[in-house]
């Protein structure tokens, strides 16, 4: 793991998504892509050139896009509805609720460029509310893969799963962390590093930062457990409770508001099942300033060094309780 972290080759997870989508499309003529003029930003150019009729571009009309996705599924197709996550979830939230989740439509929603991938474009284009908006909806698994390997595995899984799915992808480069051939399991966290001083939990673009922070902690003689938790709903309650009981403190980090996201979802179970000191890192409930995603993550205390510092402070709280 250390070699990967030390000299990472970074991957855009959209490439893994479309590679699998095109493989699925070749095997199954029912696979269709739906988009809102986002052929380029969703990287659907290859799909379009191979199967132009199966690329359903509704234009800049996200409410219609999601409804059309539900109708395509009703007609027996397997639609992957793709758009910038800020618009897909924000503009069409009621369609996601009624047409997809409540109707239990077999539609795969793919939020592209989520989090602060569009950092410089400002808060209208940040999608740091999407976990909160989607994870309250019944029937809708919410998944944020941490690397290209997990992205590919999650897309394969979503195509096999009968029902709605929300995949939250980024365009920000991340190193491969999971082993080649990894199979995605809904609601199952991946133990990336073991330790008993504290548990660090993240997903998406934060998982590799958590691993770097664990390295820094290890240099100080602190061994942290690191869990990659792509599934925000349903939460891996077993892994969360085990982490609380075994390590006594949980630090989460996410490219999302600190309100209502991964950390909140974990906290809901920690308070009920195994209360321990917790800290949730993310965007602290404000509209973020201008800057790249990497800059903003650092700005909000999610550089590896800052994460390590937060971990040390949390461990101190744990000790003071003992």
């Amino acid at each position: 793991m250390k070699d990967v972290i030390a000299s990472p080759k970074l991957h855009d997870c959209r490439d893994a998504f479309v590679a699998v989508l095109e493989r699925l499309g070749a095997d199954n003529p029912k696979v269709v892509a739906v988009c809102n003029d986002s052929v380029g930003s969703s990287k659907l150019g290859g799909f379009k050139s191979r199967w132009p009729e199966r690329l359903v571009n509704v234009g800049i009309a996200e409410q219609n896009m999601v409804g059309v996705g539900a109708g395509l599924a009703n007609g027996g197709l397997l639609p992957f509805v793709c758009g910038a996550s800020c618009f897909l979830t924000g503009r069409s939230l009621e369609q996601i609720k009624a047409d997809i989740a409540y109707s239990n439509a077999n539609v795969k929603l793919v939020g592209i460029s989520s989090g602060m991938a569009y950092g410089e474009l400002g808060p209208t284009h940040h999608s740091i509310e999407d976990f909160a908006w989607t994870r309250v909806l019944p029937n809708l698994p919410v998944i944020a893969p941490c690397d290209s390997i997990e992205t590919a595995a999650a897309v394969e899984w979503a195509a096999r799963y009968e029902g709605p799915v929300f995949l939250r992808l980024s365009r920000v480069g991340v190193p491969d962390l999971l082993p080649a051939g990894h199979r995605f399991e809904l609601g199952k966290a991946n133990l990336l590093r073991d330790g008993d001083a504290i548990t660090l939990i993240a997903n998406g673009t934060l998982t590799h930062r958590m691993l770097k922070a664990a390295d820094l902690l290890s240099e100080q003689g602190i061994e942290a457990r690191v869990l990659n938790m792509a599934t925000v709903r349903p939460i891996d309650v077993e892994a969360v409770v085990a982490a609380a009981l075994k390590t006594g403190a949980i630090l989460t980090a996410e490219e999302h508001s600190t309100f209502g996201g991964l950390g909140s979802a974990i906290a809901e179970f920690v308070v009920a099942e195994a209360p321990v000191p917790m800290k949730i890192l993310g965007v602290p409930g404000i509209f973020a300033p201008t800057g790249s995603a990497e800059f903003l993550l650092d700005e909000f205390g999610m550089s590896p060094a800052a994460i390590a510092e937060a971990a040390v402070a949390l461990i101190a709280r744990k000790s003071s309780r003992a």
């Binding site: 029912k30 269709v32 009729e53 199966r54 359903v56 409410q63 219609n64 999601v66 409804g67 059309v68 996705g69 539900a70 109708g71 395509l72 599924a73 009703n74 007609g75 027996g76 197709l77 639609p79 369609q95 047409d99």
Partner: peptide, 13 residues
């Protein structure tokens, strides 16, 4: 919108 998707699916299949 959902009906448009249904009709489009029939066209595709």
């Amino acid at each position: 919108p959902v009906a448009v998707g249904m009709a489009k699916a029939a066209k595709l299949t």
